[in-house]
Lab assay of single mutants.
Amino acid sequence: EIHIRTNGEEQARKVYKMLAKRNYDVKIEQHNGQWVVTAS
């Protein structure tokens, strides 16, 4: 499982799309105001 911390919604969405293209199961979560993308 991969966790990627991003500094904002826009970046989180870019990372989300990139990983989704590679057939990862991707989730975006917010932790303490930080956007974290989780891929498995």
Rank of each mutant, 00 (worst) to 15 (best):
E1Y: 15
E1Q: 13
I2G: 02
I2W: 13
I2Y: 06
H3C: 15
H3D: 03
H3M: 13
H3A: 08
H3Q: 12
I4D: 01
I4R: 02
I4F: 13
I4V: 07
R5W: 14
R5E: 06
R5D: 03
R5G: 04
R5V: 14
R5K: 10
T6Q: 02
T6M: 11
T6L: 14
T6D: 01
T6A: 08
N7I: 10
N7M: 09
G8Q: 11
G8W: 12
G8A: 09
G8S: 15
G8T: 15
E9Q: 07
E9K: 09
E9A: 07
E9G: 04
Q11I: 10
Q11W: 13
Q11F: 12
Q11P: 03
A12F: 02
A12Y: 01
A12E: 00
A12N: 00
R13H: 05
R13V: 05
R13F: 06
R13D: 04
R13I: 08
K14F: 08
K14D: 06
K14H: 06
K14E: 09
K14I: 09
K14Q: 08
V15L: 14
V15R: 03
V15F: 11
Y16H: 07
Y16V: 09
K17E: 15
K17C: 15
K17G: 07
M18C: 15
M18G: 05
L19E: 01
L19M: 05
L19N: 01
A20Q: 13
A20P: 01
K21R: 10
K21H: 09
K21W: 06
K21V: 08
R22D: 07
R22E: 09
R22V: 06
R22H: 13
R22G: 08
N23R: 08
N23Y: 15
N23A: 08
N23L: 09
Y24P: 04
Y24D: 03
Y24M: 10
Y24E: 03
D25Y: 11
D25F: 12
D25S: 09
V26Q: 00
K27D: 03
K27T: 09
K27M: 06
K27V: 07
I28D: 00
I28E: 00
I28A: 02
E29S: 11
E29A: 09
E29D: 06
E29H: 07
E29Q: 09
E29N: 07
E29P: 00
Q30I: 12
Q30A: 06
Q30P: 03
H31C: 04
H31D: 10
H31A: 08
N32S: 06
N32D: 10
N32L: 06
N32Q: 07
G33S: 05
G33E: 05
G33K: 04
G33F: 04
G33A: 04
G33H: 08
Q34N: 07
Q34S: 08
Q34E: 11
Q34Y: 15
W35P: 00
W35I: 01
W35E: 00
V36W: 13
V36L: 10
V36H: 07
V36K: 03
V37R: 00
V37F: 01
V37T: 01
T38A: 04
T38M: 09
T38P: 00
T38G: 02
T38V: 14
A39I: 15
A39R: 04
A39G: 07
A39Q: 03
A39P: 02
S40P: 06
